[in-house]
Design a protein around this nucleic acid. Sequence first.
DNA 1: ATTTCACTTAAGTATTCCTTATCTGAGGTG
DNA 2: CACCTCAGATAAGGAATACTTAAGTGAAAT
Lengths: 315, 315
Amino acid sequence: MSDRLPPLTALRAFDAAARQMSFSKAAAELNVTPAALSFQIKSLEEHLEAPLFRRMNRAVELTDAGRALAPGAADGFTALSAAWRAARRTVDQSTLTVTAGPAFTAKWLAPRLFPFAEEHPGIELRFSATLRIMDFTRDDVDVAIRFGFPREEEGLFSRKIIDEWLTPMMSPALAAQYPDPSDLARAPLLHQDDTAGFKPAFDWAAWFRAAGLPPRFASGTRFSQADHALDAAIAGGGVVLGRISLAEGDLREGRLVAPYKIGLRTEAQYRFVCPEGSEHRPQVRAFLDFLETHTAALKTYQEGMSFVDAAEVAE
Amino acid sequence: MSDRLPPLTALRAFDAAARQMSFSKAAAELNVTPAALSFQIKSLEEHLEAPLFRRMNRAVELTDAGRALAPGAADGFTALSAAWRAARRTVDQSTLTVTAGPAFTAKWLAPRLFPFAEEHPGIELRFSATLRIMDFTRDDVDVAIRFGFPREEEGLFSRKIIDEWLTPMMSPALAAQYPDPSDLARAPLLHQDDTAGFKPAFDWAAWFRAAGLPPRFASGTRFSQADHALDAAIAGGGVVLGRISLAEGDLREGRLVAPYKIGLRTEAQYRFVCPEGSEHRPQVRAFLDFLETHTAALKTYQEGMSFVDAAEVAE
DNA sequence: ATTTCACTTAAGTATTCCTTATCTGAGGTG
DNA sequence: CACCTCAGATAAGGAATACTTAAGTGAAAT
């Protein structure tokens, strides 16, 4: 009964058998004959000097020792195969998996998917819209686009792609009704909660302070995602404190207008994040280049605006 | 470049090489010749169709692919070997590793180590004093003794071993100075913080309410561990609201006395916890029996006491 | 210039692993 | 109740893998 690891093929056979609760199904999974699998289990039991399965003639069930081994073995092999996939992604130059929040995915990535595909026909782009923090070695992701304050992390390549600022936005029809910032006192306001935790805050209260207007009681419809708030504004549902990063397309197409010249600037920003070293992989390089050229257009919207930093009007 | 797992021996060779950053050291670790290890790495690189190491003539360094693979591979093998150790513990009948909080270890387990060893000469008992929550499949522990409210957990065997209650305790000399509960108004009180998070609380404030005495401003020395507070009381440093579970030995030996007849009872209790099925293993069985017979003596201290539930005097 | 060190390569061997074929025994079926 | 089926066990031979010894390479150290 050695303390060192037993033969790994035997352990893998056990893992499959424990998951399937059947030797023959496990054998099928591993593309070997049931006889081979039976041998592997037997050899593992000899190493342990105790049975791992109780053999009933129609089925097998785990012994206490088997139950102690199974979950950890499953975890171990899951980790190994995730690591292997991560290494394979490193080699693969034809696919690129990007994760971003739902709002950025909807408002920025999705509309630009086609242009990217045209520029880079050899790269298959995949999106994974989630706010969950990614672990590049565990999740099948090459690149993450995250919104937040700049932060360096060990082993990660990180680059700012968009400086964020906000200004009231609304449908052209509403803009005619509310020509002046002070008119917002009687306008229906749309709120978004997804950046509620950021400090210094960049919400309506902060913008009113930046504009030197009296605070308004925080009434109005609340949205959990910024893109939904923007869509509601497009539909004429109210005035949204729009994030330039997300609204750019809608502003360009005239679905939204930003009639006032007061912008609220925040240190929070969209960042491109990938494992260190990954930034040299061709498809990652291509994607970063694409992001940088396509975010450059945002700068034009800054013309004529006067900005106030969120930190200056922090509560 | 297959998506399935590569040969596991090759992966393990890579893991060792990546950890050691040296093929020859890795070969020594795995008890093979450097040539064999070189082959394994090469075969893994062929599976991946990309190099994992950059060979400099004096050293090796990981490529991007290697850096992507290494951490996950290490995690995987760590998990596998932990799982294997867990299975081995299941088979081993000669050792028993118990984890408990520092106070229980000091005041209850340590003094009874010798009696247990005499009763069960074949069992080697090991203690691991930590408050960290244990994962039986990951940490090398057979049995945990935890203090808290009763709670059932999937896959765990759990049994109450001590019903907890508290009463003021002090050295015999101090007891002479403070014959009546009301005298505590002028006594130095000792506090313990380790159960501060429990609700309903069982602290001095709760006991004063239970005794119908006016509340005292919470001054006095604070201890992060209950056993240190008891030791301070033994040394005459003040009056502690002692937990019967921890104080039993000191009460029996006369180092502490509990002069008042008002006890504060709490639902919190010491529990014996082990993986389901483990409770049948001989050394676990023996330890649980031992605990149960040696905690029975605590009941005698309840005689003559009148109890108030902590919930009844909750703030 | 020479030595040394770390890894590589080659050829042969040992070991592990897998297959085919046969066997066993309990539960389901007619 | 006999029979069949199904899941796993066992045996022996063969294929694939892993390892060893021995010789080789090239850059850094002396």
